[in-house]
Amino acid sequence: MEYIVRTHDLGKKFDDINVISDVNMSIKKGEIYGLLGPNGAGKTTVMKMMLNLLQPSQGAIELFNSTLTNNSYELFKRMSAIIEYPIFYDKLTAKENLDLHCEYMGYHNKNEIDEALQLVNLKNVDTKSVSFFSLGMKQRLAIARAIITKPELLILDEPINGLDPVGIIEIRDLLEMLNHDYGITILISSHILSEIEQIADTIGVMNNGRLIEEVSMTSIRDSSVEYIEIETRQITQAAHIMDAQLSIKNFKVMDGKKIRIYETEISQHELYKTLVSNDIAVDSINTKTGSLEDYFLSLVGGKEVV
Results as ranks from 00 to 15, higher is better:
Tyr85Cys: 08
Asn24His: 06
Glu115Ala: 13
Lys28Tyr: 13
Asp283Asn: 14
Leu98Phe: 11
Ser267Asn: 03
Asn278Phe: 04
Asp16Lys: 15
Lys258Val: 09
Ser298Asn: 13
Leu122Asn: 03
Asp279Pro: 02
Lys12Pro: 03
Lys273Glu: 00
Gly256Met: 12
Ser277Trp: 02
Ile87Tyr: 11
Asp99Gly: 07
Leu68Lys: 04
Ala238Gly: 05
Met49Val: 10
Gly209Thr: 09
Glu112Asp: 12
Asp173Glu: 15
Ser26Arg: 15
Met177Cys: 07
Ile171Asp: 00
Ile188Cys: 06
Gly59His: 06
Leu100Gly: 05
Leu141Gln: 02
Thr287Phe: 10
Leu154Ile: 11
Ser277Arg: 04
Asn97Met: 11
Ser224Asp: 04
Leu175Gln: 00
Lys13Ile: 13
Glu176His: 11
Tyr104Trp: 14
Leu119Trp: 12
Met79Asp: 02
Val253Met: 13
Ile27Met: 09
Met254Trp: 05
Leu119Pro: 01
Glu31Ala: 06
Met137Lys: 06
Glu158Gly: 03
Asp201Arg: 03
Lys95Gly: 04
Asp99Arg: 12
Lys257Asp: 12
Leu156Val: 10
Ala142Pro: 03
Leu163Asn: 00
Gln198Met: 12
Asn39Phe: 14
Phe88Ile: 07
Thr149Gly: 04
Glu96Val: 07
Gly183Phe: 09
Glu231Tyr: 10
Pro151Cys: 08
Ala146Val: 11
Tyr33Ser: 00
Glu170Gln: 07
Ile160Gln: 02
Asn278Leu: 07
Ser21Gly: 05
Gln55Met: 14
Ile259Tyr: 07
Val130Ser: 05
Ser223Thr: 14
Tyr104Gly: 00
Glu265Pro: 01
Gln55Pro: 03
Ile27Gln: 01
Lys95Asn: 06
Lys77Asp: 03
Gln118Pro: 00
Lys128Asn: 08
Asn70Tyr: 08
Val300Phe: 12
Lys110His: 13
Asp90Ala: 05
Ile235Cys: 04
Val120His: 04
Val125Met: 12
Ile196Ala: 04
His180Lys: 15
Ile266Val: 13
Ile32Asn: 01
Asp114Arg: 08
Gly167Asp: 09
Ser298Ile: 09
Met49Leu: 12
Asn70Pro: 03
Pro165Ala: 09
Ser247His: 14
Leu275Phe: 01
Leu292Phe: 13
Ile148Arg: 03
Asn65Lys: 14
Lys258Tyr: 13
Gln139His: 12
Ser80Tyr: 07
Glu270Lys: 01
Glu197Tyr: 09
Asn207Lys: 07
Gln139Asn: 10
Leu271Ser: 00
Val300Gly: 02
Met50Ala: 05
His101Met: 09
